[in-house]
Simulated assay, not measured.
Amino acid sequence: MDFSSSSEEKLIRESLKKLLESFSGEDYLKKFDSHRYDPALLSELINQGFLVDQDTNKINFDVIKILSEELGYSNSPLNPSALVSDVLITLQESSFKGLSEILKDLLSNKLYSYTSALNEPLNFEIESPKVTGKLLNNGYELSGTKILSYNLDIAKKVLISFITDDGVYLAFIETDQLEITSLDVTSKVPYSKLNLDGVIISKESIINKSGEGLYLLKNIYARRVLIQASLARGMVLKMLELTAAYTSEREQFDRPIGSFQAVSHRAANMFIDHQELDLNLQQASYLYSSGCDLENQILNLKYITGNVLHRTSYAAQHLHGGMGVAKEYPLWRYCLSAKEHEIINGNSSSALEALSKNITLNQ
C-alpha cells in the first residue's frame, strides 16, 4: 500500500507553508501569548479555500488534517477542530437543513461564529454525555455543564450534546442567553465553561434523528483524535528539527554534543516516536476515509499521540538544557502546546483503559 503524498497533497502543503510563514514569526506570535486565537489567520484560510471549498461548499477532511499538521509545525494560534470538524462536518452528516446558510455566513464574515461544547468535567467519553434533557411540551430542559469549549465567548451558535430517555441528541443553539465563563488556562487558548442548568431548547434546534446521536458523536471523536494527531505530528517534527540543529551546533569538550552517545540515542528515540505516530496516524486516516469501524484504532492513536508528545517534549527540553525553557527560544511554545494536546479529550491512560475494555469484550 502506497502512503506517499499525492502531487495535490504536496501542492496544498507547500501553499500552506508559504501562507503560514506570515503568521508564525516569533515577533508575530508574541502578540498572542495572552490569548491564542488569530482571527486574521482564520480569515486568510477561508479566503484561500483551505477550510471550505468555495466552488462546492464542501469540507475536505484530508485538507483539514494537512492544515492541522502545518499549524502544529508553525505553532500558529488557531485550532480548526471545533468549527470545521465538530460543527460543519457534523451538520453535513446530520439531518440539519440550514448548512448552506451557515457556510454562506462563514464565507462572508470569516469569523469563528460557530463552535462546539461537548467536553464535560470528569467525563472523557464525549459519546456518552452526562448533560441531561427533560422532555417538555415544546422541547427539553437541560441540566449539566460543558467545559473546554473553544472560542465559545465569541460564537453566535454552539453545538451541544445531551442525553434523554430516548437517547443522545445534538442541538445547535444561540449563545446570547447562555451562562458562559472564560477559563484561564496555562496555554492561553480561549476555552470557556458552559452552564446549562435550566436552559430550555426547542425541538427545532435538534439536528439529529432518534438513534443518530451516538453515531455522530463517535464520528466527532474520531475526527478530533485525527486532527489532534495531525497537530502532534507537526509539533513533534518541529521539536525534532530544533533538537537536531541545537545538538549539532552546541559544543562541549570541543565537540558537538550530538556526537555524544547518550545524546544521539535520546535524539534517535525522538525520531522513532515521530515515525510511530506517523504510521498509526496514516493507518487510522485510511480506515476513516474507507468508512470502516475504527473505534479501537482511534483509541490506540489517542494513546500513542499523548505518549509521543510527552516523551518528545521532555527529551527536547532535556537535550536543550536551560535553553529548553528560555522564552527567547521557540521550543517552550511547542512544549506548552504538547502538554495541552497530551491531556485534552482524555489522556493516554483513559484511552488505554477504554481500549483494554473493548479488547476484553472482543469489540
Rank of each mutant, 00 (worst) to 15 (best):
S230Y: 00
E249A: 15
L242I: 00
L242P: 07
A229F: 07
Y246R: 06
Q228T: 15
A229N: 06
R250V: 14
V236I: 05
A229R: 08
A245N: 14
Y221W: 15
L237D: 13
M235V: 12
A229G: 06
M235Q: 09
I227K: 12
T247C: 11
R224F: 13
Q228P: 12
A222C: 06
V236A: 03
T243L: 02
V225D: 01
L226C: 02
L240A: 06
R223G: 04
E249G: 12
M235H: 04
A222R: 12
I227T: 14
L226E: 10
L240S: 10
M235D: 11
E241K: 14
S248P: 06
A229C: 10
E241W: 08
A245C: 10
A232N: 00
Y221D: 11
L226Y: 06
R223H: 05
S230K: 00
R223Y: 10
S230H: 02
Y246E: 04
A244L: 08
T243F: 04
Y221K: 12
R224V: 09
V236C: 05
M239G: 05
T243E: 04
M235C: 02
E241Y: 13
R233C: 08
L231Y: 08
Y221M: 14
L242N: 09
M235E: 07
V225A: 02
T247W: 12
E241N: 14
L240P: 03
T243K: 03
R250K: 15
A245W: 13
T243C: 02
Q228I: 15
V225E: 01
R250I: 11
A222E: 13
E241F: 08
T247R: 03
L226H: 08
A222V: 11
R224S: 04
S230R: 00
G234K: 00
L242E: 11
K238N: 05
V225R: 01
L231N: 11
V225Q: 05
Q228D: 15
S230C: 00
V236R: 01
L242D: 10
Y221G: 07
T243V: 00
M239P: 07
R223P: 05
T243N: 08
L237F: 09
L240N: 07
L240M: 09
S248V: 01
L237E: 10
A244F: 06
L226N: 09
L231D: 07
E249T: 14
L226W: 09
L226V: 05
A232V: 00
A244C: 12
R223I: 08
S248D: 07
A244V: 07
T247N: 08
R233N: 14
E241T: 13
A245R: 13
Y221C: 04
A244P: 06
A222L: 10
L226F: 03
M235R: 05
I227C: 13
R233H: 09
Y246L: 02
A229E: 08
K238R: 05
R233I: 13
E249F: 15
T247G: 11
V236L: 04
M235G: 13
R224D: 07
A229K: 09
L237P: 05
M235I: 09
L231F: 11
A229I: 12
A232Y: 01
Y246V: 01
